[in-house]
Design a protein around this nucleic acid. Structure first.
Lengths: 190, 190
DNA sequence: GAATATTTTGACTGAGTAGTCAGTCAGGAG
DNA sequence: CTCCTGACTGACTACTCAGTCAAAATATTC
């Protein structure tokens, strides 16, 4: 196991532990044990728990955004592209439940609030969803509502159904996912 | 200050502290200090931190459900009643941000998951929303989707916009709230 | 293969936690 | 007035945690 591998291992086990036990339920000792290293070693790769968590979020958030653009139907109608993003978002959550649970906890924590505040201040970061909503708004095919509301109408339900699936409160098959994403479109379309 | 008053005070300050600092960021010492009592006194009213938190949830959840039925337009059309519940839900969140933040954190924590699992097992507890959705489903005016998905389509966005408002990411006026609830209806209606 | 540099180890530290309990004292009973 | 009672106190206990650092292990250089 070389240097970079050890860093990866730390990030990997931290993700799984936090997904299951939460931030406060995950100790540096647990991370070290599961990674097969000593606690002190973690501090050679990360300045502390906070940096480890923020770095993990950076990586997973990047992977998630990247996965939304896989097979992205550029040039196809707005509706088609919207469904693609919605479906791939849910699929990412179902295929990588640890990633999803970590990201969800991150966003529901002071880490996530700080991250969003920073995003708002440097308003340069615009993902595929922002571009889609901008275009749809220009074409006048979605409701005139604040951006935060539109985002909530799309991702609020999707995050909810993914969490319910992971917790075992429902079973999402392909059909249900498609109909749910379609319902989100109904929410924002004129 | 009589006995029952002290218990109320403990619950009140705990709600505010947890809303701001979270479960783990709120210590028994902080609660005692803000309530103007000694730490040991808390244990005369609650067996421990967990019971205190669960009891607080029980009370606030009851208050929230109760507030949804204020001025409830019984007998009016389905659509009217749906808008009422959605709007009153958001209003509760805006009028009582500490209550909302506590409840949101509770539901995003192991406490909330345990609570939901218990709800599912004793499936007797049915709130006004369940009854509304049952009726709408019987009349065939909403989409055929699992109950958990319908709930996510309604409350996912509403919770999101309330949180964004409390965190200062948007400003919800009466008009925007109504249009948002209307959009949730568009999501579930046929 | 010796000397040097780098990485890893894990016992340790000190700050902080939930919960405890011997003792206090205001106020009701006799 | 004296004696109880029990709600209340807060210093205390037992424990957990993130982070440190001297020493050991391993790798690299010459």
């Amino acid at each position: 196991m070389n240097t970079s591998n050890k860093r990866e291992t730390i990030l990997h086990v931290t993700k799984e532990l936090i997904a299951v036990n939460g931030f406060h339920g995950t100790t540096m000792a647990m991370i070290a044990e599961k990674a097969g290293i000593a606690t002190g070693t973690i501090y050679r790769y990360f300045t502390g728990k906070d940096e480890l968590i923020n770095e993990l979020h950076r990586e997973l958030n990047g992977r998630l955004l990247h996965s939304l653009l896989k097979d992205y139907p550029l040039g196809e109608p707005m509706h088609e592209r919207f469904l693609h993003i919605g479906r791939y978002f849910v699929h990412y959550g179902l295929a990588a439940p640890f990633d999803f649970s970590f990201l969800e906890q991150f966003h529901n924590s002071p880490y996530g609030v700080a991250y969003r505040r920073e995003l708002v201040s440097n308003e340069k970061t615009r993902g595929p969803v922002d571009e889609l909503l901008d275009e749809a708004a220009r074409e006048g095919i979605i409701k005139i509502l604040p951006r935060t509301v539109l985002t909530a109408l799309i991702f609020g339900p999707l995050i909810g159904v993914i969490r319910d699936h992971i917790l075992g409160f429902n079973r999402l098959d392909e059909e249900t996912v498609s109909r749910t994403v379609e319902a989100c479109w109904d929410a924002i379309r004129i």
